[in-house]
Design a protein around this nucleic acid. Structure first.
Lengths: 223, 223
DNA sequence: AGATGTGAAAGTTTTCACAGCC
DNA sequence: GGCTGTGAAAACTTTCACATCT
């Protein structure tokens, strides 16, 4: 599977992972501005709100074409829609969730996913005690049904929320079932597979990065 | 607060966020090798296991000094201990968790945190119905007790697992209570504060990065 | 005048390649 | 011989600065 980096070219220029992450953030800021009733925005204003430079904002947009009007700025709504289209969040996505433990439960109920048009079509778990239950009407199914369900419901992304030991096997099953992307919460490095994108979210590594910074900072300024 | 980047210099050379993330991964690989009984490892082997170049591995280590022996490689155990010390995970950390919803619940029970010496000393929530309950003996307390508890229990990191609307207020309270680091799961940009490090984990942005890649890939190779 | 879009410059990170030590 | 540690080169990302368009 393709690793942490984007892995895909687009038009003329390659688009970095960092650019895509910023697009998501621009999208959120633009939504907010739309609610505030703002109709036009300059790269400078957007940049200030985000805490980056206006050149960065313009360069990010320029990888995808020309959105603004010189002398005026960008139309808030049009820009938001365009970014949504680029990110692919202008359409609903059906996902499957593997792992009905504590983390899976939290992800299933995560409001931000719903707001962004991501809906979970089925949940899979290997624990027989959970199978047959429903969360808000969505069934918890045995792993063996993954292949059927992914194609029937046209789910294109799978979320892995199982312990490390089961992670690779689950990834293999998701790939066999035909997903095109995997959001992996299990703390392991998955084998790469052609045409399947992977993003890893490692909660513990984020915390270790903090403990590093706090520790290093303390060493510089003791007590 | 310091943003997504490290924000702190260390010794002679600045150490990038990316290097610190890789250190966490090296640590995990080394733990695994220790369990396998391997005593010495070459940068090349470590690199292969991680899927990066051996030069990257050696450069990462060289920011912190000289760990290996030319012609031989690195002692697995010694290297793992040294990295643990750099990351600050050689000692236990006490955290406070704010937000006893679904996400907070999942984080509280997250095994990987415990395995890495991160323990949650108290939970805070604004919902009166939750206050007074316990999770595995850890009390859910009203927000007003945050200051007292953080200093009493010497908690140095706070986790924010509340909805966006409450995020900034919670961050302010954590800073006032005296934490040195914040792991922020709420999908907002927190105001920066001197000497407080912040790491943001935005679950939805990770998913949007996937939907971008899958969408872009489809456009290149339709159907 | 005002703000975009973009080549060129500056800065950062990764890879190369090899001197130096075991 | 084997493998580290590290300057130098290459690749990539961000910022500058200005020509260009409304």
């Amino acid at each position: 599977m393709r690793g942490e980096s984007s892995g895909s070219m687009h038009r003329g220029g390659g688009v970095s992972e960092a650019t895509v992450r910023r697009l998501s953030n621009y999208f959120r800021i633009l939504e907010e501005m739309e609610r505030e009733g703002v109709e036009t925005i300059a790269s400078e204003t957007l940049a200030e709100r985000y805490g980056i430079t206006s050149a960065q904002v313009r360069k990010d947009f320029s990888s995808f074409g020309s959105f603004g009007r010189r002398g005026l700025g960008y139309p808030v709504r049009g820009l938001r829609e365009r970014i949504g289209k680029i990110l692919g969040i202008d359409q609903p996505w059906r996902l499957v969730l593997v792992g009905a433990g504590n983390l899976g439960h939290a992800l299933f109920h995560y409001e931000e996913f719903r707001r962004r048009n991501f809906s979970i079509a089925a949940i899979f778990d290997s624990n027989p005690e959970l199978i047959g239950k429903h969360w808000e009407g969505v069934p918890i199914l045995p792993m063996a049904q993954m292949g059927r369900l992914v194609s029937e419901r046209d789910a294109r992304i799978g979320i892995i929320a199982v312990p490390a030991a089961a992670g690779q096997a689950v990834a293999d099953q998701l790939v066999a079932a035909g997903v095109e992307g995997i959001l992996n919460f299990s703390p392991i490095k998955l084998r790469e597979v052609e045409n399947v994108f992977v993003r890893n979210v490692n909660l513990s590594i984020a915390l270790e990065s903090l403990s590093y910074s706090v520790t290093a900072h303390r060493k510089l300024r003791p007590l």
